[in-house]
Design a protein around this nucleic acid. Structure first.
Lengths: 227, 227
DNA sequence: TATTTACACATTGTATACAATATACCGTAT
DNA sequence: ATACGGTATATTGTATACAATGTGTAAATA
């Protein structure tokens, strides 16, 4: 709460948004597990706010597909099934292909320079073997592509889809065997965009997502077996 | 409220969902105009509920992009700019292409039969010249394709995007000059899916959306000029 | 002993009360 | 006359109170 009051000075941020971010983070990192119930009073006490902001945050999580509502029973963390995840990936693939295609057409010199730098940062992050750093650098790289495609709506949608697989992608990134492949794929995407070669770019991003898809589905199978 | 209490007997539906649907309808039909403020007490009195369901409905409208929140000032109906609409259409085109592609691969005989029937219904609706009937028949036709593509997530996203242009699409449908074209385009999509011809299907849907895009953007220009 | 019913408790759904803040209008001073 | 400031009001943000409902447990009866 103290941080909140402090941030309040520059930009007012409703509690519901803070709660939303907090809960989303908890779900994506696995702190809140699939099937777990989100009980309002409990969360309100834990976060030191009333039920109202909690409820409003849950409404948003519901529309993002992170929780499901059972009438008169409240919210619970959405179960992620294999079908569910492949549905999401199917859409994500199409939107990622669109975004690199648009990036090829619309990227400007300054953005190309930043994309180059982001690629180098990613290379360095991989060298550290620190999964968290790698994940962050990966997000930065892709964010520049989204920015370059000049369609905020598209960016927002892809981001939302990507979020839903964060938890599993992290496991994927932790495996050092795929690091070299990841760098190569990024390199390929970078080159294609710089050359403004749409064919090559869509092919590269396709391979990139397809690799992740296989790993994520495999990871999902493991976790679902354990439970 | 009476309808609500009645429906309550079979399936409980929270007030927030009713309010959500009501407000969304009002925005999409233009009853609530872009820039108009959504004042909670006012809406609460008008709909005969308290502020709580109103607020929760507004949270959902916010995530659907139909309203924007101004801190400490509340919600207002989102302004739809030309850029905004072409951004949405850009994404919609990609997702519609994906959905017909998947439909070609996955549609079953029973769904083909219903799609045929939906096409005939659309033909008949056009003959009546009743814009409302045409719009409904159009939605039915496309809904079967979404169902056939077997990806509920995709359907939901396309539906959400399509919703945002309902208001303008309606003006488009009212023009009798384009009716023949509309029927032909539907025919082309139907044939392509029945033949499971992905190339033809994506091309057809592309043309279909592109036509709508031109009309919608033109309509948008007219309305924005008036204001 | 098993089953059914009733009651208590936990939890969501809804309404209202209270707090903080922005805006508009009016008065005063320069 | 205009500009600045203060106060009143309208509105959102947050908290709490009340209502409805589902669930679990215990007791009573077959």
């Amino acid at each position: 709460m103290e941080d909140y009051m402090q941030a309040n000075l520059d930009a007012f941020l409703p509690l519901r948004d803070l709660v939303f971010k907090t809960l989303r983070q908890a779900i994506l990192t696995g702190e809140l597990k699939p099937g777990e119930r989100l009980m309002e009073i409990h969360l309100a006490n834990k976060l030191g706010v009333s039920r109202t902001p909690i409820r409003e945050a849950i409404r948003q999580l519901e529309l993002e597909g992170l929780v499901i509502m059972v009438p008169r029973k409240g919210a619970q963390v959405a179960h992620i099934t294999e079908k569910n995840m492949s549905d999401v990936l199917e859409v994500r693939l199409a939107l990622d292909e669109l975004s690199v295609k648009l990036a090829c057409e619309r990227i400007n010199d300054e953005q190309i320079e930043r994309l180059r730098q982001a690629y180098l940062d990613f290379e360095n992050a991989v060298k550290t073997q620190d999964a968290r750093k790698i994940a962050t650098a990966d997000v930065c790289f892709h964010d520049i592509i989204f920015e370059a495609c000049g369609n905020p709506r598209l960016s927002q949608m892809v981001n939302n889809l990507a979020e839903q697989m964060y938890r599993y992608r992290f496991e994927y990134i932790k495996d050092p065997h795929i690091h070299a492949t990841l760098v190569m794929e990024h390199r390929s995407i970078l080159d294609a965009i710089v050359e403004r070669n749409i064919e090559k770019a869509t092919q590269s991003i396709h391979d990139h997502i397809a690799h992740q898809e296989r790993a994520i589905i495999a990871q999902l199978r493991v976790e679902n077996r354990v439970e």
